[in-house]
């Protein structure tokens, strides 16, 4: 019998620490499968973030570096410049990429660094207990926006992908979702595109992944996926931005 679905070599055979229904496991797998399919595992260097995915290197079977919160794209810039033949990517959450690391994000993008960014947007800070993130939706309740995010007090959900798409240094920006198997397949295609761009020296590519956090959304895994479809995707529309 032919085996048609198997664990990527780029993924260790271990269980993850993620909560039930969390999107990180799927996103990690998509990255690993893409790296396998492109045949670049042995020249890949990943940058793990600070946040829930802080120990992503325990799950990925290739070289990895930690980066301080928000600094992943500064670290990645240097690694890629030192080793232009390697494939270098960052994996960052919304607090990391769009709050504390906004400066590093914008400037790496503006320099057109030949990097791939996998940006996980789950609209909360997960690791620290579900605080308001730059991407938290208006009205969304978090431990630091108890009555729901209010535009007057907290400002609006930050659309960093649309902002980055304005920069001439940026080659490719797409927003995808892990809301259904069909969307997961589309997400994988986008992530693959972002890696191919780097391999073809086309410059800065970013894929924003709308990812469920049932724990801090106070929902069941199924409700969280529906919430992405019915609420989150309205604020963060899917598709190619650039």
């Amino acid at each position: 019998m032919e085996k048609i679905f198997f664990r990527a070599e780029s993924l260790y055979d271990v269980s993850t620490h993620y909560c039930p229904g969390c999107g990180h496991g799927i996103a990690h797998r998509l990255v690993a499968e893409v790296i396998d399919e492109l045949g670049v595992r042995e020249k890949t260097i990943g940058i793990a973030p600070v946040g829930c995915a802080v120990v992503a290197y325990d799950y990925w079977n290739f070289d990895c570096s930690e980066a301080a919160h928000g600094r992943a794209l500064a670290v990645a810039t240097a690694i890629k410049r030192v080793h232009p033949q390697n494939v270098v990517f960052t994996y960052q959450g919304d607090g990391d990429l769009a709050a504390i690391g906004t400066n590093e994000t914008i400037h790496a993008a503006n320099r057109g660094e030949n990097l791939t960014v996998v940006f996980i947007n789950n609209a909360v800070y997960g690791m620290t207990g579900g605080q308001m993130a730059p991407t938290t939706l208006l009205g969304q309740k978090t431990s630091t926006s108890i009555e729901g995010r209010q535009k007057e007090k907290h400002g609006y959900p930050l659309k960093i992908s649309e902002m980055l798409a304005l920069l001439p240094g940026v080659t490719y920006v797409e927003r995808v979702s892990l809301q259904s198997p069909q969307e997961v397949l589309k997400a994988k295609r986008a992530i693959k595109q972002a890696f191919e761009n780097q391999i073809n020296n086309l410059g800065f590519s970013l894929v924003e992944v709308l990812s469920p956090c049932p724990t801090y959304w106070g929902q069941s895994p199924k409700e969280a996926l529906d919430w992405i479809r019915d609420v989150m995707q309205k604020e963060f529309p899917l598709g190619r931005i650039k």
């Binding site: 600094r71 240097a78 690694i79 030192v82």
Partner: peptide
């Protein structure tokens, strides 16, 4: 773009 970026670039280059 900043000193935090500079030192983290040094971190990356040293790691490489």
């Amino acid at each position: 773009e900043s000193e935090p970026a500079a030192i983290n670039m040094v971190y990356g280059a040293a790691a490489a």
